[in-house]
């Protein structure tokens, strides 16, 4: 496969992600979003977005634009990985744009978790892939879009501190196209499971 350039990736991603912006929200909507985040979303994602359960992604410190785009994708039933269908399609169905933006702001302003180092050797291999990609199979450097510190850039999500199991599951969903994002399908299809495991271990260890 011909390697994807960073520019191409950016263009595809800009099309793939919605262009919504999570702007400032009014106090009443903010209060409503906080109640939702703590009372409903919190059961799985943690009340401040620091999920203790690897099945559910950590949202604290996540890029607000990315979160808003995902909630709209759940609401529009265009994000099709298994847990999105089983959980988030229903969860996001009644949310209006204002509430989505307020939820995105709430999580974006929460303190992200410290990284957790598991297998250091595995994480070290993951770092190489994250920073340099795997040129032989056309996998670009993850850092090109997600940032050198994996804190996300623009519409690209923060990955630092994310549960490794969640990252693994998403990469598998991109590979199979259940989660239909062209740019990530292109990136992930060249990765072997061991390489995905290494990248996920590296990301989970990042603060």
């Amino acid at each position: 496969m011909r390697p994807l350039t960073v520019t191409t990736l950016g263009l595809i991603a800009a099309l793939a992600l919605t262009t919504a912006r999570a702007d400032d929200v009014d106090p009443a909507t903010h209060q409503h979003a906080v109640r939702l985040a703590v009372g409903t979303c919190g059961a799985c994602h943690g009340t401040t977005g620091v999920s203790g359960q690897p099945k559910y992604p950590r949202l604290a410190g996540q890029n607000a634009n990315y979160l808003a785009a995902q909630l709209k994708a759940f609401r529009g039933q265009t994000r099709g990985d298994a847990d999105a269908i089983g959980y988030m399609w229903g969860m996001a169905a009644p949310l209006d744009d204002e509430t989505i933006d307020a939820l995105a702001q709430y999580y974006a302003t929460q303190r992200p978790p410290a990284g957790r180092m598991g297998d250091a050797a595995l994480a070290a291999r993951g770092r190489t892939i994250y920073e340099k990609g795997v040129e032989s199979v056309g996998v670009p450097a993850c850092a090109a879009c997600h940032g050198p510190d994996a804190h996300g850039m623009g519409d690209f999500p923060r990955l630092a501190g994310q549960h490794a199991q969640y990252v693994m599951k998403q990469l598998a969903s991109f590979q199979s196209n259940m989660r239909n994002v062209a740019v990530m399908h292109g990136v992930a299809q060249g990765l072997k499971e061991e390489q995905m495991r290494a990248v996920a271990a590296y990301l989970e260890a990042q603060p």
Partner: peptide, 8 residues
């Protein structure tokens, strides 16, 4: 009512 599968 919730739009979520039983597994939730």
């Amino acid at each position: 009512q919730t739009g979520m599968a039983c597994e939730a």
